[in-house]
Design a protein around this nucleic acid. Structure first.
Lengths: 371, 371
DNA sequence: ATGAAAGCGCTAACAA
DNA sequence: TTGTTAGCGCTTTCAT
């Protein structure tokens, strides 16, 4: 909520250009459209204007901007110069109509508010920008209805879709994938190229970490039943526990929220363990607050590992030890794959691209007091 | 990071409508673009196809979708039916080219990652959807260069811009406002319609609250020097302190981050007060952690009030008492204003639209121990 | 390396 | 209420 404004003086002074008296507060009241030409901007110059001014054919101007190299260097320079003088800018709509592609990508996430998506968004946006695409962020706010509607709107104007943790059914997803190139993120969908973090490896590292600290009985605070990621993590946990000769219990399903963590704590108090691995950071945070409220100390009485390494993980006390998912890399990988598809590569229905994760050790884990 | 995937079972069931045999899993490796027509989607039907099938003129089809009501109800029904059968969808690019408007709005924020913008984004998106617009979210990541570039890209394809807490100079902003309708958020820019929260009222409420708890000397942890909001808050604070017969000290400027709060704590420890008001929640959080680290208790030794009421404010301990800015309302108001402009209303250069704020009392404030 | 013609799909004007 | 005629600004053939 800060800005670099220099208008800090708060001067209401109004250099009124329409001069219709002192600030009429209400926005768009009566007066309809101003006479076209009033404060209205002149229609911008086109390739024809530039062509004429530069003494070439319109097509040459077009080429100068869309396929440089296919035009004489000198000619191109001259055209560019003239264009700059005239303030020419290529019209994306016209180009889109002619080429059928917009250079827009849709990125769908279930909840912008969820810190998990920050870096994904950044990764997607950076990689997209690099490839010459602008991204249209679609926030479905955890509603498959909203997701479908928003996607419906976006579909006809984008060249491809990055579907982050979709709330839609596999069937709906495949339906959409038939219409536009698509890559799924954080979720494997048959026949759809997908990019996922290495969930198995993540929980395994968490378990190892706990093991090294002397905890050999740990509780897993499970996520939503329908969660693909949760399934992967629980499976990975069981396998790892076998290899490491440790024991893992499961509590859940839990909502993937602070409240879910609180609920998990209730159950855990019935049968405490010195080690806990949570489905995600929010659950871990809720769990910690709840058990602290019951007089337990973290990490002295119980070590807890979160998952995702969200923004807030570093803010709570104790700061959360957690598995960091490479969200930026995830987003970037998805875009690369998507752009490849758009450029003409066949979509690969093969196994998901798996991106590595890593454990971030902070204050919520410590040696087993009993050891 | 969870999903509702049903693919857990791996059900391959696919009511294949294209029926080209059992899912050929591995599509393409080397081979370049597929023969146009292979897995490529057929070019979609146009108004001409629909017109022909329905036995009317193309224009009538066009009207049916763009100006319903201007066409006979029965005819319209028939056309819609035929269109549905053919799977006709109006082509936004063609429409945009013809009408010169895209029904896209740009929302520029300096940092998606900043919780402050969540609700603004939601408010903007909802209101925009209601008005028939899709929003293109532009994240400038605190860089005026990036902001300018992204805006550059977005400008030609949007009908208007909501500029949230811009990092650009007033001059740049006015420049852009000349090209497209615009509304500034959280910042007053001369000659540009703007919507801002009631900063003066906010700090005043914070001060009152502290006063009621018996603190009459409070420290203000100031934000960045260049911040418009900071100026407003400090000014509001001074005025309120006069009226309330309280005393306010100022420490700063500080970075609007957790680190800034830590820095502020250092200075505060030189001359502690029992009441503290921070520029924003992040600063408050940093401050609290730092003073706690020096053995001070919150709120027993010092009461602190944050600003903004971000997501994390409720997660830290003690939970933060803070001034909640009506971010969703802010976003919605901006869009209403913007759409009014687009629809033809004159831009109003008058004073900013001011949206009310409110104080959220949580655990970080308490009675003055000395009282 | 450059150009002329045609058209992408839709919507403004005007008619009828 | 409906239809006809022109474009919107760009990129595609296919020449030159």
């Amino acid at each position: 909520m800060d800005s670099n404004d220099t208008a800090g003086q708060g001067v209401p002074a109004d250099a009124g250009d329409a001069g219709d008296g002192p600030s009429v507060v209400d926005a768009g009241d009566a007066s309809p459209a101003p006479a076209p030409g009033a404060s209205r901007r002149r229609s911008s110059p086109t390739i024809y204007d530039v062509a004429q001014a530069a003494g070439v054919a319109p097509l040459t101007v077009s080429r100068t901007f869309s396929r440089p190299g296919r035009v004489n260097a000198e000619t191109a320079d001259r055209i560019r110069k003239v264009a700059a003088e005239l303030g020419y800018r290529t019209n994306p709509m016209a180009r889109a109509l002619a080429t059928t592609h917009t250079n827009l990508l849709a990125l769908v996430v279930p909840d912008i508010t969820n810190p998990v998506y920050f870096e994904i968004i950044n990764g997607v946006q950076d990689e997209a920008a690099e490839a010459g695409y602008t991204v249209l962020l679609v926030d479905s706010r955890e509603s498959d209805k909203r997701e479908r509607e928003a996607l419906e709107r976006a579909l006809p104007i984008v060249d491809g879709i990055v579907l982050g943790t979709s709330r839609m059914s596999d069937a709906s997803i495949r339906m959409i994938a038939k219409q536009k190139p698509m890559v799924a993120l954080n979720r494997a969908v048959r026949e759809i190229p997908s990019v996922v973090p290495d969930n198995a490896r993540g929980v395994r590292r968490a378990l190892e970490h706990l093991g090294e600290l002397g905890h050999d009985l740990v509780t897993y605070l499970a996520g939503p039943e329908a969660s693909w990621a949760d399934g992967m993590r629980w499976r990975g946990l069981r396998e790892a526990s076998l290899e490491l000769s440790m024991h893992v219990r499961r509590i859940g399903p839990l909502a993937p929220t602070v409240a879910g963590g609180v609920a998990g704590a209730k159950a855990w108090l019935q049968a405490p363990t010195t080690g806990v691995i949570a489905y995600n950071d929010l659950v871990a945070i809720g769990f910690i607050r709840a058990v602290q409220g019951r007089g337990k100390r973290v990490p002295e009485d119980v070590s807890v590992v979160g998952y995702d390494n969200i923004f807030a993980a570093d803010l709570v006390s104790p700061a959360l030890t957690t598995v960091a998912t490479p969200r930026r890399a995830l987003g970037a990988a998805a875009v690369r794959n998507l752009v490849a598809q758009i450029k003409g590569a066949h979509p690969r229905g093969g196994p998901p691209v798996v991106v590595p994760v890593k454990l971030v050790e902070r204050e919520s884990t410590g040696p087993n007091a009993r050891a």
